[in-house]
Design a protein around this nucleic acid. Structure first.
Lengths: 144, 144
DNA sequence: TTTAATGCAAACATTTTGCACCCTG
DNA sequence: CAGGGTGCAAAATGTTTGCATTAAA
């Protein structure tokens, strides 16, 4: 995670942008071990809970920087706002979302990735990225 | 398409709702052969172009009814609004979206569907639906 | 000390909703 | 003619932006 932070700072410097305390705070929130799929409001709330005063506008500006830098990805969980997760080096994955409780499980999809690459080639597309959302009822919610 | 319209009307009646001219107009726009992935504004604009005065609010209310009835699905093409397409009986499909020109190609994903069902079972989820968005550059845009 | 970063409030884009009036059944 | 449907404007929601002030380098 420290390594990721250094990458972010290097990325900022290489673009002539500044390394600020506020940006580091937001970075740390997204990369914190307890964080999972936070949205902008979540990040803002958690910072305030830690007595760090950062405006929501700056949270948005910073997550946009992080997404551009490739260190964070914006994920769509079927809600009307984005969620953010560290891009890191772990394998690409899809999200399994419970329609009842909202719980989100990740699953790796290497098999699917191959199939998508095959389809892309067939259609003449130069692929960039893809995302998969699967909706259903988790074990607990399904019982009821 | 007439069959689908009858289903919609039956669905309305079975729920104690009314079959109105406005609802039929919106239905026909979404199901028209030339229509592909229209968003609410598109539907509204096309109706006005055909000299049918319908408010945007009613377009939203009606697409919501159609989605609830299962006859239309709301699809996410990575923009900040939903697009609507007839659910119909054709096989489920994903969308291949060009990052340069926005062109959308559909692809069938029966192989992927099996893989997702396997994953759902493994995680104890009772599956409902899933969606896949693939982003890249189409043949024309990729050349440049 | 220069110029980017930030906070605040206003602007934006999409979608929903309250209410008075209209029309279907 | 009762109760749902519609248009309109306002509200709600998530996100971006203009501007004056603060702070990094």
């Amino acid at each position: 995670m420290i390594k990721e932070l250094e990458k972010f700072e290097a990325n900022l410097r290489s673009r002539g942008l500044r390394v600020t305390r506020t940006r580091e705070l937001i970075f740390r929130e997204i990369f914190s071990r307890r964080a999972v799929h936070l949205n902008a409001e979540d990040i803002h709330r958690r910072l305030r809970a830690g007595h760090k005063r950062v405006s929501l506008a700056t949270v948005y500006r910073t997550v946009n920087l992080l997404v551009k830098s490739g260190l964070v990805s914006a994920v769509d969980l079927g809600e009307d706002h984005s969620h953010f997760e560290p891009e890191s080096q772990r394998p690409a994955h899809g999200h399994l979302i419970c329609l009842a409780c909202g719980r989100v499980l990740e699953f790796s999809h290497s098999g699917i990735q191959e199939e998508i690459e095959r389809i892309g080639k067939e259609k003449g597309y130069e692929l960039d990225k893809f995302s998969i959302q699967v909706f259903g009822f988790c074990r607990e919610c399904g019982k009821k």
